[in-house]
Simulated scan of single mutants.
Amino acid sequence: MAGTLNMISSLAEISKSYSVILSDVWGVLHNGVDAFSHAEAALEQARQSGIAVVLITNAPRLWPDVEKQITGLGVKSGYDRIVTSGDVTRQLVKEGPRKIFHLGPERDLGLYEGLEVELVEEFEAQVVVCTGFFDDETETPDDYADMLRRFRARNLPFVCANPDIVVERGHRLIYCAGALARDYAQLGGRTLIAGKPHRPIYDAAMQAACELLGRELDRSEILAIGDGMMTDVKGAEDYGLDILYVSAGIHAGEYGNPHEPDEQLLAEFLARHGHHPVAVIPRLR
């Protein structure tokens, strides 16, 4: 976009130019509480037209667990495959030290299933694997400042299974593992991240798309969709993909009414971040 925004009202306006859609999940298909039926319908319409749809999410769990979660929220169609940050993080865990301190809720322990690792207390750990906060309803990054300093004093590697800083949960913003990885990096700690915006998750999504279509793909055939500037948008553009920006997501407060954004403020916001979506839509439909 050279000074102007390509505002669209439906995915169908641009989807015919692509063979594959890589869609974010949280913020695009649901907000952690409610499913967005219009988004599901839009992706299903794309599928019915022959476009392969791969959901690409920074959820720190394996894809069957994410599928169970979104099904429980009411998302029952609109995709062919799911690729998660948890899926690609397993390789980092597999290649790393065996004694792991798990930083995150118990619901994420499936990440280690089938891996030859040992979950230990903090003082025994050779590596930290962070999937989130122990209690993301009440805690903030400040609650972990002392713990992160202890990790840094021992020079422990910090594997981040969810690079998101925050996500929407209903009408609130909830901190994710990425906030702690950010703070650990600021202390000079070593972080390892495979989810968006980093390459491994896009390589996995590309492989899934090629398998679905039964052929190699050019990146110009792929449209990414997302609402996170530092994850979805940056990751797609760094990988050489077109990105459809969903503006009523986590950054909506930057440019007025989420459903009718101030286009000048929105253009200035995108310019500040140096990103150039091929189109902008308030909510996917």
Rank of each mutant, 00 (worst) to 15 (best):
G249P: 12
G274K: 03
E121K: 14
V166N: 13
N31D: 00
I56W: 13
E95W: 14
G178I: 00
D238P: 04
R272P: 13
E44Y: 06
F269V: 08
G228Q: 07
S220R: 15
L217P: 12
H102G: 03
E116N: 08
I201N: 08
A179N: 02
Q126W: 08
L115I: 05
V88W: 10
L284M: 08
A42C: 02
V25K: 01
L284N: 07
E106W: 15
P157F: 10
E113K: 14
E95F: 14
V88K: 12
L173F: 09
T84N: 05
G235D: 04
L55N: 10
E139G: 11
A125N: 06
E221C: 11
I222C: 09
G114V: 11
H198Y: 14
M147N: 13
Q69F: 12
G235S: 07
I225N: 07
V120Q: 13
A41Q: 09
F101G: 01
L192S: 12
A204E: 05
E221I: 14
A35N: 10
L266Y: 07
P277F: 06
L111A: 11
G132I: 07
P197I: 00
N162Q: 04
D164T: 02
Q126Y: 07
Y255P: 05
V167D: 02
I8W: 10
V128Y: 11
L217H: 12
E67F: 11
Q48L: 10
S23A: 08
A224P: 00
E67Y: 05
Q186Y: 13
A208P: 02
P261L: 03
T191V: 07
